[in-house]
Each structure stands twice: as C-alpha cells, then as structure tokens.
C-alpha cells in the first residue's frame, strides 16, 4: 500500500507521531500489508452493501421478478443504477491506490449478497421458484469497465467508452438467464411469454399485474430491435452517470476536516 499524503495541512504539524510504530523495514512492510488486507474487502463490502440497498429501492422490482424484465425499461434503468456506486469506489481506488479493481470487487460482493438474499428471502421465505427470482449478473460488465480504466488511465475516456459498454453489454450478458423466460406459452387462447405465465401462476397478493412498469409504448416500430435500442440509450445515459458519480466519489473520498465543532 502506498498513499499520497496531503502536504501542508497546518493542523497536522502538531500531530507528529510520538515515537515510531515500526522499527524495521520488515515491520513496515508488514504494517502496509495489514492495511491492504483490511482496505480492499472493507470498501468492497461496505460500498457493495450500500449498492445492494440503492438498487433494491430503485430498480429492485425489475430484479426480483422475471415478468418485469422487459425489453424497454429493464435494460435502460438497471445499468444506470448499478453503475453509480462502482463509479464512486473507482475514484477512490484509482486516485489513491492506482488499482483498477473497484467495479469488479463491488460486482462480486453485490452478486454474492444478491444470490444469498434471493435464495433465503424469495425462495425459502416466500417460496418462489429460484429461476423466477434470479438476480442479474453484471460482473462481466464491471470487468470491462475496469479494463477500460486500466488501458486508458483516464476517467474521461473510461466514462465515454466503459460507461457506454456497461450500458450496452448489460442486457446482452443477462440474456442466458432471461431468454428461456421469453418462450411463448398459451393460456386459454392468449399468447404469453413464460414470464407472464409464471407471473399469473405464482400468486403475489400485493403485487398485482397492473403494477408492472414494462414496455409502455407501441414497440411495433422497432420490432425485435427494441432491446438493443434501449441498451444504447442506457449506454449514453451511463456515460453521464459515470461522470457524475466519479465527481461524487471525489467529494466522498476527500479526507477533509472541520477545525471547530461549534
């Protein structure tokens, strides 16, 4: 671990350490290694937890129920919210440690927390079939985002290229989970997708069908291309989201002080 010290902080002059905490290079390296061992999992879990909370309360419904995963809203809004906290953490990891791993770390923690939560809460607690409540996977999109940062070494270019790819790849990377749910099924003489059918079958007392926010619009104009079009729009917005949240990250990770409380 190596960290850049903010020089010239007047209040720090009186705060020189009383003595030495380490007395050899070996001890020094050990201390730095300890700090490394704490830092990476700590930030991943902390900010990953905040990300789980943020996404549950904004785009949770698209994530919980397969019949919410339409071609219009889900590819559009979910990546935008998923990108927010990785962008914040990316700033801290890259600015202070030059580590392009924040998005991947968060995506892993997020996915682990989600899969445990879906199994415990939606499968065991409320008895839904697991394939009906599968969480989205966005580890691949996060790896791409980090890789772009590693290659370009620039937040501006990462937002432009990585943000676009993040929005664009999200629904494509989730296609294996969603595709079987788009098979047509007949109920009476009504054609439904398997997802619609299961939404009718597996009773949700307080979640009636009309609450779904899906495919509002005529869709006929775009035919089967509506999902890629939504993904592109999501990519454009993702660029903006990335810039805004990297800026928030620069504020959130600033080690600032207040000299007097009152």
């Amino acid at each position: 671990m190596a960290i850049q010290i903010e020089a010239g902080n007047k209040a720090d002059v009186d705060r020189t350490p009383r003595g030495n905490a380490v007395i050899s290079v070996k001890e020094q390296m050990q201390a730095w290694r300890n700090a490394d061992l704490f830092f990476f999992p700590l930030i991943s879990v902390l900010i990953g937890g905040a990300a789980v909370f943020l996404c549950a309360l904004t785009v949770g419904d698209w994530s919980y129920w397969m019949d919410w995963r339409d071609r219009r809203w889900w590819p559009l809004v979910t990546p935008l919210l998923l990108l927010a906290l990785p962008a914040v953490a990316t700033y801290a990891f890259w600015r202070y440690f030059k580590l392009p791993v924040a998005a991947t770390g968060l995506a892993l923690g997020f996915w682990l927390s989600q899969i445990v939560s879906r199994y415990v809460n939606f499968h065991v607690f409320t008895a839904f079939p697991m394939n009906w409540v599968m969480p989205e996977v966005w580890i691949g999109a996060a790896v791409v985002l980090d890789a772009v940062l590693l290659i370009t070494r620039s937040f501006a270019l990462t937002g432009l290229v990585g943000g676009m790819l993040f929005g664009l790849l999200f629904s494509a990377m989730n296609w294996p989970v969603v595709a079987p749910m788009h098979m047509p099924v007949l109920l009476g003489d009504t054609v439904m997708t398997l997802a619609d059918y299961m939404g009718f079958q597996y009773i949700r007392t307080a979640m009636p069908e009309y609450v779904r926010i899906i495919e509002a619009g005529t869709l006929r104009t775009f035919g089967t291309h509506v999902a890629p079009v939504s993904a592109f729009v999501s990519g454009f917005f993702a660029i903006l989201v990335y810039y805004v949240f990297v800026w928030i990250g620069s504020k959130g990770s600033r080690p600032s002080w207040l000299g007097k409380l009152v």
């Binding site: 409320t126 008895a127 839904f128 109920l187 009476g188 009718f200 079958q201 597996y202 009773i203 949700r204 007392t205 009636p208 069908e209 009309y210």
Partner: peptide
C-alpha cells in the same frame, strides 16, 4: 386485478 390472498405462492393459479 382479480387476485387471491394467500401467504405466498402456496397455490399456483391455473385459470
């Protein structure tokens, strides 16, 4: 929406 009040999907609605 005509629905059924049950504690979770303990039944599957067929029709």
């Amino acid at each position: 929406f005509l629905n059924i009040g049950v504690p979770g999907p303990v039944f599957v609605r067929m029709d």
